[in-house]
């Protein structure tokens, strides 16, 4: 036990001594939360609009006034012909043009279709603003996220990505560094049980991951105003299962990699890329081809992010996420067993 304790102290010192890495590890969550919370939005806002009107009928005049009054659109220019508008859009000086034709009964909306989703939303908004449609028949209600803040969606995703990054990448590197520096040789030749070495490596990162988790949750609640609708207890429990899984992955990588460089590239390319791309954190899984959806079923963060979205944002009970949690638990058990069994007690 004393050995274990002194090991943990040693690992903690390694982490604390590298100030720059520490700064990044704790700065990253804060900066990411702020960026996603405030800067990165898909909101329709400040859309640069051109009015194409050789002749403005009173009706068109009204429409223009409505447009400029709305916070969505900013009218930047009025030009006589559609061609001029197109030129401005190509030069990236405008995003959308509203063309009032002579018949002034018809309106044409010309959008920059470069970003298909935004183009779609801009036209939707423009139509609504101009026509002021009497949609008495249809009511729309946004569940869970009435102001449609992107933070609601991203907080669980950031948790999924950062915990994976810190636990898997940092643990694997710290084991491989000992191999590279030759200290592993001494550790292995000592009477310490290999299991102690491994567990002692994992503990400081586990603590650190929990600190980061708490930071993220506090920031989400108090800075971004994301409600923690579900039970905090279960959020933490599920997160710990996930952290354990990430640690096991890190250990597995450290068994394969011989140099820090390989460990870095393995965790960055083979681990982080799929985590970001195929976990549904940025891009919806439903829109992907079947093959990729199949691949995505073995990506652990996918289940974690899914579970966190439900637990945190939708505020459902634990039984609603039992599928995700059980998949995570099974994966953790499997990976941990493999990682411990594969840990090399001798050199190669």
């Amino acid at each position: 036990m004393k050995q274990f304790y002194s090991f943990v102290i040693k690992e903690t010192r390694h982490i604390l001594r590298d100030k720059r890495t520490m700064l990044i590890l704790f700065g990253m969550p804060v900066v990411l939360m702020l960026l996603f919370g405030f800067a990165i939005t898909n909101d329709v806002k400040n859309v640069r609009t051109i009015i194409v009107a050789p002749y403005l009928s009173p009706q068109a005049q009204l429409a223009v006034e409505r447009l400029s009054a709305s916070e969505y659109f900013t009218i930047t220019a009025t030009v006589p012909a559609t061609r001029d508008a197109e030129q401005l859009i190509r030069r990236q000086q405008a995003d959308i043009a509203i063309v009032f034709t002579h018949q002034h009964q018809n309106i044409q909306i010309v959008t920059d279709g470069t970003d298909p989703n935004m183009a779609q939303q801009w036209t939707n908004y423009a139509q609504q603003v101009i026509m002021n449609p009497s949609t008495t028949l249809i009511n729309t209600k946004m569940l869970y996220n009435p102001q449609m803040k992107s933070a609601y969606n991203f907080v669980p995703a950031i948790m999924g990505m950062l915990l994976m990054l810190i636990c898997a990448m940092m643990t694997s590197i710290s084991v491989v560094r000992e191999k590279e520096k030759g200290t592993m040789e001494v550790l292995l030749a000592s009477p310490v049980r290999p299991l102690t070495v491994i567990l002692a490596k994992a503990v400081p990162y586990l603590v650190m991951a929990i600190c980061i988790l708490v930071t993220i949750l506090l920031m989400a609640r108090h800075v971004l105003g994301v409600p923690l609708a579900g039970s905090l207890f279960w959020i933490i429990i599920v997160s710990i299962i996930y952290i354990t899984l990430a640690l096991s992955l890190g250990l597995l990588i450290s068994n394969i990699a011989q140099t820090q460089m390989t460990a870095l590239l393995l965790s960055a390319m083979v681990l982080i890329m799929p985590v970001v791309m195929l976990s549904g954190m940025l891009f919806p899984l439903e829109s992907m081809p079947q093959v990729l959806q199949c691949v995505a079923t073995i990506i652990p963060p996918r289940y974690y992010i899914e579970a966190m979205r439900k637990l945190m944002i939708m505020g459902v009970g634990i039984h609603e996420v039992s599928r995700e949690v059980s998949v995570l638990t099974i994966m953790t058990a499997l990976l941990l067993t493999v990682a411990l069994a594969k840990f090399k007690k001798r050199l190669e």
Partner: peptide, 9 residues
């Protein structure tokens, strides 16, 4: 044979 201590301790 090669230096095998923790340089940051």
């Amino acid at each position: 044979g090669r230096f095998s201590l923790y340089e940051d301790l």
